[in-house]
């Protein structure tokens, strides 16, 4: 590569383009979502159903995420050790509701506010399995940092058309 062939302005422009694009790409990339506790889906789904923790997924509009008391209800002691693990005292405080603010899960799937989506209509009435939209969590040992499936409106419409269910805009948009 002969530097002299191109003017320094070209290299300057290239450098600016490089930095700008890199910064832009970093800024616009989806950021990973990290959870406060290293929840292991695989260890739990063998024994129980999604609805144990996502308590609205069968009977509610929103599936929801479990409060820490769902965990302390089964686990008498903190279920993991190592970095970031709570102490026994802290775990018990979360169980009774005293003490510091308990850990709060960060949402992976965020429904836009202009969409009405009823989980129970899809799981309970239509009988769809959770994995159909959310991907299969049963083998995940760590909390996913990105949604296993990114859902766009065309995914909803595609399924509705295939199943011959209404695609009337006003049924879901609000």
């Amino acid at each position: 590569m002969t530097l002299g062939r191109r003017s320094k302005w070209v290299w300057a422009a290239t450098a600016v383009a490089f930095c700008g694009s890199a910064a832009g790409a970093v800024w616009l990339s989806p950021r990973p979502t990290r959870q406060p506790l290293p929840y292991n889906h695989a260890a739990h789904t063998a024994k129980s159903d999604c609805v144990l923790c996502h308590q609205g997924s069968r009977d509610g509009l929103r599936a929801g995420l479990p409060g820490i008391q769902v965990c302390t209800g089964c686990h008498a002691t903190p279920p993991f050790r190592g970095a970031g693990a709570p102490t026994q005292a802290q775990w018990q405080a979360w169980d009774t509701g005293d003490g510091d603010a308990p850990p709060v899960w960060n949402r992976l799937f965020r429904l836009p506010s202009h969409v009405f989506f009823s989980h129970r209509r899809h799981t309970n009435v239509a009988g769809l399995p959770c994995a159909r939209c959310h991907g299969d969590m049963k083998d995940r040992r760590t909390p996913p940092e990105f949604p296993l499936r990114t859902l766009k409106m065309r995914d909803c419409i595609g399924c509705h058309e295939a199943e011959k269910v209404t695609t009337d805009c006003a049924r879901c948009h609000r």
């Binding site: 009405f116 009823s118 129970r120 209509r121 009435v125 049924r171 609000r174």
Partner: peptide, 14 residues
């Protein structure tokens, strides 16, 4: 208040 219809219809179907 169509959003109320959405919820009411969902409840009825449920």
């Amino acid at each position: 208040c169509h959003h109320r219809h959405q919820k009411a219809d969902d409840r009825a179907r449920f």
